[in-house]
Design a protein around this nucleic acid. Sequence first.
RNA 1: GGAGGAGUGCCCGAGUGGUUAAAGGGGACGGGCUGUAAACCCGUUAGCUUAGCUUACGUUGGUUCAAAUCCAACCUCCUCCA
Length: 398
Amino acid sequence: MKSTEQRVSKILSRGIIKNILPSESELKKKLLSGEQLRFYIGADPTGPSLHLSHAKNFMLLEEFRQLGHKVFVLFGDLTACIGDPTDRNAARTRLTREEAKKNVDSWVNQIKAIINFDDHDNPAEVVLNSTWFDQMSVTEMIELLSQTTVQRMLERDMFEKRINNNQPIFLHEFVYPLFQGYDSVALDVDVELCGTDQTFNALAGRDLLKRFKGKEKFVVAVNLMENPATGELMSKSNGTGVFLGTNPKTMFGEVMSLPDEMIEVVLINNTRVALDEIAQLDIKNKPRDAKLFTAEKLVSIFYGERAGKDEKESFIQTFSKKSFPSDAPKVEIEENQLDLLSLVKRCQPEKSNNEIRRLISQGAVSLNGNKITDFEESLVISQGMELKVGKRGFFHIN
RNA sequence: GGAGGAGUGCCCGAGUGGUUAAAGGGGACGGGCUGUAAACCCGUUAGCUUAGCUUACGUUGGUUCAAAUCCAACCUCCUCCA
């Protein structure tokens, strides 16, 4: 077992953390004091799915839990109903409480592989900020609102931009930082982990905590995972996402389809592979191997080592060696004879006929390894036929 | 309360009466290439009983041989003034 000091240094220096306020050395001192600190990450459950950039925050939190600190995963079910003004479109996509609650359940499910909620002695704890905001009286709210000034809020770049662009700022989003910040007070924390884009909000919380409780909160700002070549953030719309809550095969594939530049970013943020081991991978010259390694690691973390190995093997067999995957779904066909269009439709009923016609004429469909481009071609169905549709659609015909 | 502006396909965004199922970009999908589902090149991207038909540009009506494009009402959103 390494000394606490070594473990702490390792966590702080891996390259995940961008900035520590008020200072790294102060935090380090505190971490080594032997005191059990209270950590938290807050996240507004605005959508159903999480990706790796979210996951890395929770993984970091888990490391602090393993050091013996108390950690909270805070879901802003109430603040999600406000909409963080950081997101330009948030004002439009306000959630109902029911939607937020649903997302919370889904998120907990997705992160329980990387954060331990069941530890006997020191489990991570899920908290919802509606717990305290629902109890808050108007008197208390006025007290909260009186803790800051309009000028102070206006320091926020986002608000300044909106004013310059003649974009609206609604009152409820204007005070959003205050509400988010109050979470720190309610939870009485020592340290908050947040994305660099949330620094302003986290600092608002730091101020509040100082005023209400005279306590100095540390803010640990972590990098957002972005493509070093293009600066693109990981997100669904950029197509650069690896999403949690799918399945091992999908996750493996999503990693393989990441741009090569993302390999190192993912290894650093989402695995704990030693930095010198990452360097030895020689990503530049062997991107494919490095990516396979990364994909296996990730699937192992989320679904277990067995799944990681299996998916890697399956990927190599299917896409490198081009052999028909043995775990392809089986489709029962009663008829002895069927045209190609209908056959594909049986396997992928969610596709429209037009789409299937298109695929066939583009040469995407093959039977037993032979490409067929006539969708009207009548086929004699036999046991064990192998149908391939596109890159990833594999079916055994029975 | 007054004046003005906007609502287009999965997303962003052109388009102001007629080859417009709607430019362009993104995403996605397919093909080629690659011992990566990366990159790159090319193509596709409403549905159907597919040489035809049906549905589609906020909603509902109207004008016209013909409307995303003109008119009316309504809904939603934004800006400025007060």
